[in-house]
Simulated assay, not measured.
Amino acid sequence: MKEPIPPRGHAAAPISLRLTPEERDQLERDAAGRSLSAYIRSRLFGADTKVELAGRTSGRLGPAERQRLLARILARLGASKALPSLNELADAARIGVLPLTPDVLADIHGACRDIADIRDLLLRGLGLRPANGEHDDP
């Protein structure tokens, strides 16, 4: 007699495993940024095992995806001219010599766009979805 096939969309029941703190630390080190479930599954069933995750539409990121996204954020921040530009504008405003030329306005708009992009990437890194159109240019 065949076993009944579980309905689609239902996740399999989790398996619990008790570990010592040292074992857990070793497991997390060995996983190297992957989720523990994905790492354990690959060790048990082979590196080519792929699992479809039902409900993965929540926008949540796995540890490796989050690490890549945060690396992009840091690279973008390092390459951005926003902070030095804003510091120069603040100094000029402080001493009262801020001419609002097209170049200055373009720098202000560019800095605001960079900051908005960095904000959106940070929100995604935290597993949140940035609202579209939430920020406007000055």
Rank of each mutant, 00 (worst) to 15 (best):
G33F: 05
R18M: 05
G62I: 04
R72I: 00
L83P: 00
L61I: 10
N87A: 13
P21V: 04
E3H: 12
G62M: 12
P63E: 13
H109V: 08
N132K: 15
R72Y: 08
L105D: 03
G9C: 10
L121G: 12
D48F: 06
R60D: 03
P4N: 12
N132I: 02
I108Y: 02
G9Q: 06
D48G: 12
K2E: 09
R72M: 05
L126G: 13
G127T: 05
Q26I: 01
D30A: 07
R68M: 11
A111H: 02
L17K: 08
D136H: 15
N87C: 06
A54C: 07
A75S: 14
R119N: 07
A54I: 02
G9Y: 00
I40Y: 00
L128D: 12
L69D: 08
P130N: 08
L77Q: 14
S85K: 01
N87K: 12
P130E: 06
L128R: 14
Q26V: 02
G59A: 12
G46N: 04
S80H: 08
Q26L: 09
R60M: 07
L44H: 03
E52N: 11
H135V: 02
M1A: 14
L17M: 11
S58R: 13
D107C: 11
L27A: 09
A11R: 13
E65V: 12
P102F: 03
D48L: 04
Q67T: 10
P99K: 06
R113N: 09
L126I: 02
V51H: 13
K2G: 08
A31E: 03
L89K: 01
T57Q: 14
A12I: 00
L122I: 10
E52Q: 14
I73P: 03
R56C: 01
R8E: 13
A92K: 11
L17R: 10
L77W: 11
P63S: 14
G96D: 04
V97A: 11
P7S: 08
G125Y: 06
V51T: 15
G9V: 02
R24P: 00
I95D: 12
L36R: 11
D107M: 09
L27G: 02
P138I: 01
L89G: 01
K2F: 10
R41Y: 01
R18A: 06
S42T: 02
D114E: 15
P99Y: 07
A92L: 14
Q26P: 01
S35N: 05
Q67C: 08
Q67N: 11
G96T: 01
G96W: 05
L27K: 05
P6E: 09
L121H: 10
G46P: 02
G46W: 05
H10I: 09
A11M: 08
A38N: 05
K50R: 15
P138Q: 07
A47F: 03
D107Q: 13
A54Y: 09
R60Q: 13
L105Y: 04
R43I: 00
L69P: 01
A12M: 13
H109I: 07
R8Q: 12
A93H: 03
I40E: 00
A75H: 14
L86F: 03
P102C: 06
